[in-house]
Design a protein around this nucleic acid. Structure first.
Lengths: 244, 244
DNA sequence: CCCTATGATCCTTATCGTGGAACAATAGTT
DNA sequence: AACTATTGTTCCACGATAAGGATCATAGGG
């Protein structure tokens, strides 16, 4: 257990900062005192420090609090593809080690699935380099993930896929066997960000001879777990607040 | 001067959090110690507390630090139109009080300038309600702001406006007199977010008989100041790091 | 004007945070 | 494999800091 001594006031200030950041509307000192079970004088003092560092800001001189310029700056910068790639690198390596197949991280775009990073299998027969390549949604596992969870809409609809996409939603991951090209099998799980929106998918792919339906079933828990790990790093599921 | 006693460790932790948030790449404990002039033991302890609250996260168990899930969640949520509207409400009121004209907050969209909020003048003759209305960029002061500072690009170019847009960039604000419709005068200044990007504009508008060229010159400093105030709340100009 | 609610400040005291030293872990070199 | 260098973590005595009840200040409503 790591040492937690000497950090009580950091813990308190962090609690307050997160309460402000997660609040749906600007929140006052009294409300924060209630939410954190701290005396108002303590809240007032700690909040003043957070305000001095631009982590929170007020409406007027003594008004309710909202995320400050520093938080807004981070909010506007956003989490880019590079963050996504870096935050998922170890998950891709673990999946590659466990499955001995090709692992990809892909994001949805209106023009198709785009691959951001890849870890190759050790096999001679495996997937080629997909980074930068765009493929249609309908015939790939990651594309089906995006369609199933509403990350993209395709022109002309996908009525023919409706029962399959429902199955994807139910079990949490998608598969594509021999659809993009004969002999190629793949499975994919969604990566979510803060409020639950799908921002990427992790996939495992390889030849059908290795990535059999049984093997796919065996790998599913690990794939879902690693997708959940990356999602947590992006802030999904870490708020104590109810859904907006 | 507000009381700053009893917040030394909050101040230190805030410094560390901001250093991590502003760092272009993941940053280690030793580097943070140098950047903040704190002993490594102090940095290690404070960073552990920030990590416990998901404000920072590490690559691996002891690796370099990057913004944590809580910050990523906020980053993904982004600063929406509602934040923009609320953060600028008092600025619009002050501008309306000082100018006695109609004040608007507008954002750039590919389809034209969109108005998010408005404070009306006390006059019988003034601008009608613009909220929700879209107007072309070329003939409005806010549209010229967006064109001048690169917030939008319009189809077919705007070669005819080039000298005027250069003047807008130089003095920092745009004007439009009798262009959208006869008798209507307006001036606008850019609102920037974290890294300097133009996300909105504040404008003053009214009839040419009141909003004369002299009056526009008189109001320019206040308009620029209020636009800068809102920009600061959005995180513009608050980082200590050099431009990326 | 009075009352209520919210937020800020004061300041004594006990608890907490500090930081140098030592230890632990990791990475690089031979 | 052994050694060295670098980075990061933990310990703990002690002094400095943070706590929080009491009081004050401000704002809004009747």
């Amino acid at each position: 257990m790591p040492n937690t001594s000497g950090t009580q006031s950091i813990d308190r200030a962090a609690q307050l900062l997160i309460a402000v950041a997660d609040s749906a509307a600007p929140i006052g000192v009294g409300e924060l005192a209630e939410a954190t079970d701290l005396p108002k004088s303590t809240v007032s003092r700690l909040v003043a420090a957070l305000e001095r560092h631009a982590l929170v800001q007020r409406d007027g001189l003594r008004g309710p609090l909202r995320p400050g310029p520093v938080m807004m700056r981070l909010a506007r910068r956003g989490a880019g593809d590079r963050d996504l790639t870096e935050l998922s690198a170890d998950a891709l390596r673990r999946l590659a080690d466990a499955s001995a197949e090709t692992i990809n991280l892909a994001v949805p775009t209106p023009l198709g699935v785009e691959h951001l990073s890849q870890v190759d299998s050790g096999h001679f027969i495996g997937s080629t380099n997909w980074i930068g390549r765009r493929v249609p949604h309908e015939t790939t596992a990651v594309g089906k993930v995006f369609l199933a969870f509403g990350a993209v809409r395709i022109a002309g609809g996908h009525a023919g896929l409706v029962p399959e996409l429902e199955a994807v939603r139910v079990r949490g991951y998608a598969t594509a066997v021999g659809e993009l090209e004969p002999g190629l099998a793949a499975m994919a799980a969604p990566v979510r960000a803060g409020a639950g929106e799908i921002v990427a998918a992790l996939s495992i792919s390889g030849p059908e001879t290795r990535l059999t339906r049984e093997r796919i079933g065996d790998l599913a828990p690990l794939l879902l777990h690693e997708a959940a790990t990356v999602s947590a790093r992006l802030g999904y599921g870490t708020t104590t607040q109810g859904a907006a």
